[in-house]
Every structure is written in C-alpha cells, then in structure tokens.
Design a protein around this nucleic acid. Structure first.
Lengths: 156, 156
DNA sequence: GCACATTATTTCAACATTGAACCATCATGC
DNA sequence: GCATGATGGTTCAATGTTGAAATAATGTGC
C-alpha cells in the first residue's frame, strides 16, 4: 500500500511549490551553464564573477558571498591559483587574512565569459514576460528572507 | 576602474531575477534541511523519498528522478545499502537492471522524517500567501520548461 | 608580558557530483 | 549461433562540499 498523502493543505501547497522552485533553479542553471567553458566549474565562475564585480576580496568574504564554507574556498582558490586566474596575497596589517585578486588572465576570462552567461540567462528568462520576471523576483526575495515564524526563531 | 554594467535591460532583469531565484532555493533548502537527521544527506533523503512515494525503482529510474548521473547513484545507493536503508536486487528478466527497494528500517526512517520536512517547508512558505505560492509555482513551472527560443534549440 | 578567547585559514575524512572508460547483459541482423 | 551495437551499472579521476580538528595570528584582560 502506497502511503496516502496525509498533509495539510498548507503542506501540500508548500511541497508542490518547493519542487517546482527547485526544478526551475536546477534546470535554468544547467541550461545556462552550457555556455561556460567546459573546464570552468560553476563555483569557479561564481568566484571569478565576484572578484570581477567587486574587486579583490578576502577568502572569508568570498566564502560568505558564495554561501560556501571556508574549507571549500581554500580548495576553490587553490585550483584557480594553480590555473593562473587569481593570486593570493597576505594582508600586511593582519596576516591572518588572505586577499584574492584576479590576474590579467583571470580578468580576461571572466570579461569574456560573463556577458555570454548574461545573454544565456536573458534567453532562459524570456520564457516569462518582464512583469512576470519582476513578480518572480519579488516572491523569491520575500521567500529567501524567511518567515518570522516562531518555529524558525533560534533561542535568544 | 570597475567594469560598468553593459547589459541590455532584458539581461539586467534576468540576472537580478536569477540571483534571487538561486538565493531563495538555496536558503529555503538550507533552513528546511535542518530538521533532517544530521547523518542523512539531502541526496540520500531524496532517494528514500522517491522510493517511499513510488515504490521500488531501478537505479536508472532513480537517477533520472533525482536529475543525477548514473555513477553518482551507484555511490548513493552503496551508502544507503551499507546503512541498511535499501536493498539491491537484480531483475530476473533483464539482469542488467537493479531494483532498489526500501528495507523496513528505511521505510520507518522516511515515514518519520518526511512529515517533519513537510511541516518545515510549510513553515518556510508561510512567508508567502497561498495565492503567492500558487503564482510562484506557476512561474517556476513555466520557467523550468524552458523557452522555445531558437538559441536553445539543439541541432536536429 | 602572559594566559585566553577570537578569527582566518588549512587540513582531513566523508560524501556528492560529473564525465569518461569499462564491463556485463541483452537485442538485432546476418 | 555470432558479430554488432545498445543499455544498465560500476569504476576512476577530478572537483565540490561540509564540518570538525588543527594552525597561525590577533586582540583582551590581568
């Protein structure tokens, strides 16, 4: 016997919306990703993009922008450094910090690749009208901020 | 000099919407995930959930449901089998196929954990009204299907 | 100045993920 | 039957990912 769905209407609606949200983000990402060079991973792209649009950053800043762990960034920056796209430099005032900056090669790469991704994303989102995109952005922002529900509140 | 944004309005809107879409899906997933047992990964949960709601599946079916590669599923099922949550059984008619099924232990786990996730998701989506959730689901579905743009069409 | 906590990074084990190479099994055409 | 090709699964190398432990540098209280 298959388990009969015993969800409240609120749960059923949330589940359905969640599945569609995940499918949309995964498939748009997958399709847009195809315009990137095959040997550039999405995380590497995201790191280069952050450095491109914000200038040199500390590894910890990069980690929080990308919502990734510190240990992860160590590896990602390792690989980008090995491939000559970024440089590491210890901060002279506080030598715990490491400043990551684009090399000329890295700057050239992201300056070439980013516009391609922008075009590709615009193409994907052309499935929606501008008004629909604006509404989607608004709903996602509201959702991403989180509900001020008591169940989600951490103990003070 | 920071690169001046040289995007068309369509690209700027798509980029903004995309970032919010990704942030929303990532943060909702991260917050909802906290109700799962710490030693159960999200992919393992997703696999158990598929088996729970659809019954035994071939590994290839599981891979396509979860949008993951075949090689990946081999490892995920390995780990689930090692922990006693699923069993593998060769199909007697076509011995290339492997049928994956929940054990009693696996069934008990997902039957306990899934309602917790449903409640948690309902809590997250309470940030939106039911009408907003319905609209979000509609927009995500439309977006996930992809636009019938000529640029996305593969060569016949 | 010294113990102590704090912070940034690294290291490590475990798992996820992909894509390619490989193996086993089946189906087809001869 | 047997070559051939297609299909499902496994294996492998490389990268991503986390969380915890370890390092290193800084700041604080005394």
């Amino acid at each position: 016997m298959p388990p009969r769905s015993r969800h409240s209407p609120a749960e059923a609606l949330a589940l359905d919306t969640y599945v569609k949200l995940m499918r949309a983000s995964e498939s748009v990402t997958a399709r847009a990703h195809t315009v990137l060079p095959a040997d550039l991973t999405f995380t590497q792209f995201a790191a280069l993009e952050a450095l491109y649009h914000r200038g040199p950053l500390f590894q910890s800043e990069l980690a929080s922008k990308l919502l990734k762990s510190g240990g992860n960034l160590t590896l990602v920056v390792d690989n980008l450094e090995r491939d000559g796209f970024v440089t590491r430099e210890r901060d002279s005032h506080d030598r715990r910090f490491i400043r990551v900056a684009l090399t000329t090669k890295g700057h050239k790469l992201i300056a070439t690749v980013f516009p391609r991704l922008a075009t590709s994303l615009a193409n994907e989102f052309a499935a929606l009208t501008p008004a629909e995109q604006t509404e989607l952005a608004r709903l996602c922002k509201k959702l991403g901020l989180g509900s001020p529900s008591p169940a989600a509140a951490p103990a003070p």
